[in-house]
């Protein structure tokens, strides 16, 4: 079983402490949501855990191997990474973009092996993209592009997934669709760590929430245990009413 184990991780950049002493574990079957205000260090934590950003302290291991010692290919085989969505450089076909998820398996566009082709077709089907497979990405809507990126991550067939704001700038329906796709991936035996800004969405889908504030993980537990009005006030600085998993935000505290 592949496990991402982050211990006492700190990131300091230009003298500013972005992440301090963060520790958490991600295992298959879990859907962890990282919540916290802008600048809480969520993205830095993910990037440092994947060794895409320099750590000043701490370790992040996959099955005992530190991610900073793994080659990018080996790391990508264990963890699929969806960074915040940026425009694609070229108007490639949807199928080709999804096939890029097979990069760590040695796939080259236009010369895919049968296993790569299968993985791409499965990911296209899982994300309901079959009818768009031969379209150019510059003809798609934001919601469709978000699904293409999900399919790209799923095509890798990695046991873990780290996604940074995969539902940013999407309408509510598409937010649910993307979260359903990630939930299906977790139900199918994957483990996901997802950064969100929508507390209700987090409460609905997370098996655990990492609450982050000023670079620290201030709480780590199930939504039922950690989602309280007091937490929302201390982490986000908002007045809120919480009943069960439903959240009503009244305004800034």
């Amino acid at each position: 079983m592949t496990e991402l184990c982050v211990t006492n991780l700190s990131v300091v950049r230009d003298g500013a402490s972005l992440v301090s002493n963060a520790s958490f574990q991600l295992q298959p079957g879990e859907l962890i949501v990282a919540l916290g205000p802008n600048g809480a260090g969520k993205t830095s934590l993910l990037r440092a855990a994947l060794a895409l950003e320099r750590r000043s302290n701490g370790t992040a291991t996959i099955d005992g191997h530190d991610t900073s010692q793994l080659s990018p290919m080996a790391r990508a085989e264990s963890i699929a990474y969806l960074p915040q969505i940026r425009p694609l450089a070229w108007p490639n076909l949807v199928r080709d973009v999804v096939a890029l998820g097979r990069f760590s398996h040695g796939a080259a566009l236009g010369r895919l092996q049968a296993t790569d082709r299968d993985a791409v077709e499965k990911a296209l089907a899982a994300c309901d993209l079959e009818h768009l497979a031969d379209r150019r990405t510059d003809t798609l809507s934001g919601g469709e592009i978000a699904r293409v990126h999900c399919a790209r991550a799923f095509a890798a067939g990695a046991p873990l997934l780290v996604a940074d704001e995969p539902v940013a700038a999407l309408d509510p329906r598409h937010q649910f669709r993307i979260m359903e796709l990630i939930a299906d991936y977790v139900a199918g035996g994957g483990g996901a760590l997802v950064v969100l800004h929508d507390i209700s969405l987090a409460a609905r889908y997370a098996s655990r929430i990492l609450w982050m504030k000023e670079g620290r993980i201030v709480a780590d537990g199930s939504p039922a245990d950690t989602l309280t009005a007091g937490r929302l006030e201390s982490v986000y600085g908002v007045r809120a009413r919480v009943s069960g998993l439903s959240v009503e935000i009244d305004g800034a505290a």
């Binding site: 990508a76 699929a80 940026r86 990069f103 760590s104 790209r152």
Partner: peptide, 12 residues
């Protein structure tokens, strides 16, 4: 094509 961040994410 995916951008540098995502490209390193897929193993580049």
């Amino acid at each position: 094509t995916l951008g540098e961040e995502a490209a390193s994410g897929v193993g580049l």
